[in-house]
Simulated scan of single mutants.
Amino acid sequence: MNPVWLPVVVLQGVWLRSTLRLASAPGGGVSGTVPGPGAEPLRLAVLGDSTAAGCGVTDGEEAFAASLAQELAARTRRPVDWQAVGQFGAASRRIRFQLVPRLDDNLDLVVLLAGANDVLAGRGPDLWREDLTGILAGLTRRAHRVAVVGLPPFTLFPAIPATLARYLGERAAALDAVTREVCWDHPRTSFIDQPAGTPPPDFFSIDRFHPSTHGYRFWARDVADRLCLGQPAP
């Protein structure tokens, strides 16, 4: 970004922090089971920040983890035992040292939703690489397969002013480039881009920052499609 725009970015950042009222994490369960005709359940965990915690909806059953479990159960025709380990405001350092140890062992799949708070906090690619590497080292010991979801398209967030959103989008792209490299170096780990194009009109919740119930379902459907690619999940 042209440095001449940095004062605008600073002013818009101050305005956003003073006006934005983010949705809190929902009530309801942080784990559950989606039934399916198979005998052996697929063990799923979703790990990360406020989106893993389900901020933007009122019940955990409406959030990303439960929605992804439903999508995977439909595609694999297996029951899915799922858990969500997420925390509002968690950047990669907190996820690495506080949240990864809370996961179960012997999981089939872990989906990581992280990095947005690193972007918002101004943490650079080197710190992101260090913590993401540590996170994946812990996850590959606990799961047969790991998927890291790319950073959100900040330029599409209704709550974020345009110049600030463009700045955040450029920072997010730099972290995503690192994520692809780190995933390539870790066994049984894949990178999943965010859905392409403009999200549907009802994607965002009332805070205009986190997904709504419909947004989480849309997002989970896209991630499930990328995970399965027409094949049964592990």
Rank of each mutant, 00 (worst) to 15 (best):
D202N: 13
F154C: 04
A90C: 00
T179Y: 08
A224K: 01
V223Q: 02
G60W: 08
P158V: 10
R94M: 06
D59R: 11
P37R: 00
G56S: 00
T213A: 14
L44P: 05
L127P: 04
L6S: 03
A147L: 03
P199Y: 10
A224H: 07
V182A: 02
V111C: 02
V80T: 07
R171D: 01
L139F: 01
G215R: 06
R180M: 07
V146Y: 14
A233L: 14
V80Y: 06
H214W: 08
V111Y: 03
G13L: 01
G54M: 02
A159F: 05
M1R: 14
T58W: 02
G56A: 06
A165Q: 06
R217W: 09
D81T: 14
R123E: 09
P152G: 13
A45Y: 08
S50N: 03
E130V: 10
L132F: 09
G122L: 04
G13T: 02
R171H: 10
A65L: 04
S212N: 04
C228H: 13
G115H: 11
L136P: 14
S31E: 14
W82V: 05
S50D: 05
A196K: 08
P26H: 04
L107P: 13
Q194V: 12
A63P: 13
P152R: 14
L120G: 13
R43P: 07
H186Q: 07
A172S: 12
A116K: 04
N117T: 08
R171E: 07
E61W: 03
A69C: 09
Q194S: 08
R188L: 03
E62T: 13
G32V: 00
P7V: 11
L120Q: 12
P3A: 11
T198E: 08
I160F: 04
D59P: 08
G124I: 03
A172F: 05
D118C: 01
A224S: 07
T33K: 13
A73R: 02
A39E: 15
I160E: 12
A63C: 09
R17N: 12
R129A: 12
R129Y: 11
T213F: 02
T189L: 00
R221I: 06
P26G: 03
R145S: 15
P201G: 07
L44I: 08
A52C: 07
V80E: 09
F157Y: 12
R21H: 13
L175Y: 03
L16M: 14
G56H: 05
A224P: 07
A121Y: 02
R77K: 14
M1Q: 12
L227G: 09
P158M: 00
F218W: 15
R77P: 08
P101D: 13
T198N: 05
T179M: 12
V4S: 12
P7N: 05
Q87F: 07
